[in-house]
């Protein structure tokens, strides 16, 4: 745990970046960079954060930052990590920087999943952070495998026959943990202390670590930009996005939500779910609620807790 006053004043996420007003991903990046413990290299794949931060000759980055392509951030990070391992071994440098990937859900859940799996299996000492805004926001709100069931996107429109995305969201942390990695966790921007603490903890761990950070997107989720943090908070308070960590395979709940709000309170302020609030689609909200309840029970069991 840290206090805000203890965090560095220096901004490594420069103002003047081109993120939309109220961007949740931008908040996540800023918090991540406040959690650094020393020399760091950040790698990003193509995506919102990449595009808003690196329009030549303007960069928002105060740390060395590398972008190559969309699906290969974990591989590029592998190369940098291995290169520094070599340089330390050869005495070319004496300090191995922390290598952090900051990638969107498209670059993580979808197109970059293979490279991520490969890098985890090869046990590179790096931290992979997915800022999850639940769709391809940069290209104009197309569904990804991180988009939740029922959500409207431009490729899962709320049509007369198909009311939004029919499929469930993928379990990224489950996939990461299946690699046997030493540390994985979820976090979200409203819980800044939890997020920063987890970044620091992940950096301290030797070997590959993964953080899944929910980052609400006012543009794509269709809510007022001032509500970004509030939506993030509701995601936790409704148990839509439970905060937990997995340390050497052991699950631990980070935020206990003993009196959860109904998921409707998370869904209602977001116009991407507006079509669910009609009599014919109400059943989808019930399915989502059921899925959340069951998921929570499963999580509690994994954490060795009783409901």
């Amino acid at each position: 745990m840290v206090t805000l006053k203890q965090l560095p004043v220096e901004e490594l996420w420069g103002p003047g970046h081109n993120a939309c007003a109220g961007c949740g991903s931008s908040i996540a990046v800023k918090m991540i960079l406040k959690a650094l413990r020393g020399p760091t290299v950040v790698v990003s794949p193509t995506g919102c954060v990449e595009v808003v931060s690196s329009s030549y000759p303007q960069t928002a980055w105060g740390v060395p930052w590398v972008h190559v392509l969309f699906e290969n951030a974990a591989a590029v990070a592998s190369g940098i990590e291995a290169a520094y391992k070599y340089m330390v071994k050869k005495g070319i440098t004496n300090e191995k920087p922390d290598v952090i990937v900051i990638a969107g859900d498209g670059g993580t859940f979808d197109i970059g999943l293979q490279a991520l799996s490969g890098a985890l299996e090869r046990w590179h000492d790096f931290l992979y952070i997915c800022y999850d805004n639940e769709a391809y926001m940069n290209t104009g709100i197309q569904r990804s495998s991180a988009t939740p069931k029922g959500a409207w996107t431009t490729t899962s429109p709320a049509g007369k026959v198909i009311p939004g995305k029919p499929e469930w969201k993928k379990d990224l942390i489950g996939i990461a943990v299946a690699h046997g990695i030493p540390y994985a966790a979820t976090a979200t921007i409203a819980y800044w202390n939890d997020l920063i603490t987890k970044v620091r903890k992940a950096l301290e761990v030797e070997g590959p670590t993964v953080l899944h950070v929910l980052a609400p997107c006012p543009l794509g989720w269709r809510f007022d930009p001032s509500k970004t943090v509030e939506i993030s908070r509701l995601a936790v308070q409704t148990r839509y996005f439970p905060l937990y960590e997995v340390e050497n395979g052991v699950y631990k709940l980070s935020v206990k939500v003993s009196r959860p709000k109904p998921v409707e309170e998370f869904l209602r302020p977001q116009r991407r779910f507006r079509h669910l609030f009609t009599p014919e689609n109400r059943h989808i909200i019930e399915e989502i609620q059921k899925n959340i309840d069951e998921g929570w029970e499963r999580l509690l069991k994994r954490c060795g807790l009783k409901s």
Binding site: E50, S55, Y56, W61, V63, P64, W65, V66, H67, V68
Partner: peptide, 8 residues
């Protein structure tokens, strides 16, 4: 701190 892979 340099930026590699900016877009143009």
């Amino acid at each position: 701190p340099m930026t590699f892979g900016a877009w143009a």
